[in-house]
């Protein structure tokens, strides 16, 4: 009898930790039904506020838009890198690229954004170069706006995207390409009809990870957007910490949690259906 309880004793400490998180999440839910004035329960007032107030709504639509664009750009930029490192690179080249990617994956996000400030700022690398070359007299405005945030988001998610793609690319069966090529298919057809479909699971995984990371990004809009670019995490932090409006912050967190969950379910579902179709 006691022997059957052993696994439960083993997982108990970890579950205790998880229980703290679940308690916290349920208080987020609880707070989101309070009124901002602090005079008790107020039903869905906060959610209605988020849905009807134009400026709050913009935080959500704009974050989704920025996350979508940055994920798409990261996919376009990341695919060639993943393809090159798995197919064309020599083993030692591959190892170096891999170590470099991992170093970036593990490097500090705040400091990476600081590096981008040095590149995009008024007297940063790009503007210095442009003025030296005589392209422009006045410095370009490359940060504290949408462009700066997009560059920051793409740079932040690229390592995740590449590391999600290289797994599926490494497993590509080269004989399929050879067969198609022997049968006379041009390279672009081989890419579109063989390589790309086989990579879909990795593309979906990378897209999910990148989209969620961009959507939840806080450091990038604060440092490269100067706090002036509307992203959800900034709204939640402002409401919860700076304005001490916990009910509205909690409601926004609740909505973000739901959106993230929906994205995970949607992309996982797509992946499962795709796998089933091809595993007959």
């Amino acid at each position: 009898m006691i022997a059957r309880l052993v696994p439960y004793f083993l997982v108990a400490p970890a579950l205790l930790l998880i229980a703290v998180l679940l308690t916290g999440l349920s208080s987020v839910l609880g707070w989101s039904f309070q009124s901002s004035a602090g005079d008790g329960a107020a039903g869905l007032v906060q959610y209605a506020n988020l849905a009807t107030n134009e400026s709050y709504r913009h935080f959500f639509t704009y974050s989704l838009w920025l996350a979508a664009i940055s994920t798409f750009v990261a996919l376009l930029l990341g695919f060639p890198v993943a393809y090159y490192m798995e197919i064309n690179a020599s083993p030692s080249q591959r190892k170096w690229i891999f170590a470099g990617l991992l170093a970036m994956f593990l490097s500090d996000y705040v400091l990476k954004m600081f590096g981008l400030i040095l590149i995009l700022g008024r007297s940063g690398l790009v503007n210095r170069l442009a003025m030296w070359l005589g392209v422009t007299d006045a410095p370009f405005k490359l940060m504290y706006n949408e462009f700066g945030v997009l560059v920051g988001l793409v740079s932040g998610i690229l390592p995740y995207m590449i590391l999600s793609l290289n797994g599926v690319i490494a497993r590509l069966d080269k004989r399929l390409h050879e067969a198609a090529s022997v049968l006379g298919a041009p390279p672009w057809r081989i890419f579109l009809l063989i390589t790309l479909p086989l990579c879909v699971p990795g593309i979906l995984a990378g897209t999910m990870l990148s989209f969620l990371l961009s959507l939840n990004s806080f450091v990038t809009p604060m440092l490269l957007g100067g706090g002036r670019v509307d992203m959800i995490a900034v709204l939640i932090f402002d409401q919860a910490i700076n304005l001490a409006n916990l009910p509205l912050g909690s409601a926004a967190a609740g909505v973000l949690f739901l959106i993230s969950g929906a994205v995970i379910l949607l992309l996982n579902g797509l992946g499962d259906r795709y796998q089933k179709r091809f595993q007959r």
């Binding site: 997982v11 970890a14 579950l15 998880i18 703290v20 998180l21 308690t23 916290g24 999440l25 208080s27 987020v28 707070w31 969620l212 959507l215 939840n216 806080f218 959800i232 995490a233 939640i236 932090f237 919860a240 916990l246 912050g249 909690s250 967190a253 973000l256 949690f257 993230s260 969950g261 995970i264």
Partner: peptide, 20 residues
């Protein structure tokens, strides 16, 4: 459940722990 923290957005985790 043990993997759950991976799926909670960081801001949500932050505010949840603050309220806790």
């Amino acid at each position: 459940l043990v993997m759950a923290p991976l799926f909670v957005p960081e801001v949500v985790m932050g505010i949840a722990m603050l309220l806790w």
